[in-house]
């Protein structure tokens, strides 16, 4: 008997493959139920026009009770967007990935939320504490306790 997590991920994957991703988002790979990769770009007027980023989802066996670990991939061919809530190592400070995660959300819902987070950006700058955070950041962003203050939190 497969676990709840893999059954739910299987369903989400089926949906994505059947109905396609939301606009601007493409599934790059979903070879297992541990990590999925998406490409994400912002269509229409935005500060990130022409930029394509790579998103990595990591799931544990408690998904969807526990939130997926989501971050931008930073390697030779992709970087993290310059955004006040995105650290240069790709970690994202977004409440829906932390205390506001709920099982009603899904992989594609997270993608869309992040897309709109980028689209609504007013100024391209790194978080204030970027250097300090990146120096000591854990590999998995879920191990970080982000402080979602009023200014930073997202719907």
């Amino acid at each position: 008997m497969t676990s709840i997590s893999s059954r739910r991920l299987r369903k989400e994957l089926n949906e994505i493959q059947a109905e396609g991703c939301p606009t601007g988002i493409t599934l790059l790979s979903a070879d297992n139920f541990e990590s999925w990769f998406f490409s994400i770009e912002i269509l229409g007027e935005s500060l990130y026009q022409g930029e394509v980023f790579k998103l990595m989802f990591r799931f544990d066996s408690n998904y969807p009770i526990s939130a997926p670990a989501v971050q931008f991939v930073v390697d030779e061919d992709s970087t993290a967007p310059v955004h006040p809530h995105v650290y240069s190592n790709g970690h994202i400070c977004a409440s829906i990935l932390g205390n506001e995660w709920s099982p009603v959300l899904s992989v594609s819902a997270v993608c869309v939320t992040l897309q709109s987070m980028l689209a609504s950006c007013k100024s391209k700058e790194r978080p204030v504490d970027n250097d300090r955070y990146v120096r000591y950041a854990p590999d998995n962003p879920k191990k970080t306790r982000f402080h979602y203050d009023g200014k930073r939190s997202m719907r």
């Binding site: 408690n62 526990s66 932390g98 099982p103 306790r145």
Partner: peptide, 22 residues
């Protein structure tokens, strides 16, 4: 019930544990 129980164990998520996300 599993969701509620897990959320209640996490201090930052506890306030949302007994609320419909929608």
């Amino acid at each position: 019930l599993q969701w509620i129980q897990t959320s209640q164990q996490n201090r930052s998520r506890a306030p949302n544990a007994l609320k419909c996300p929608q």
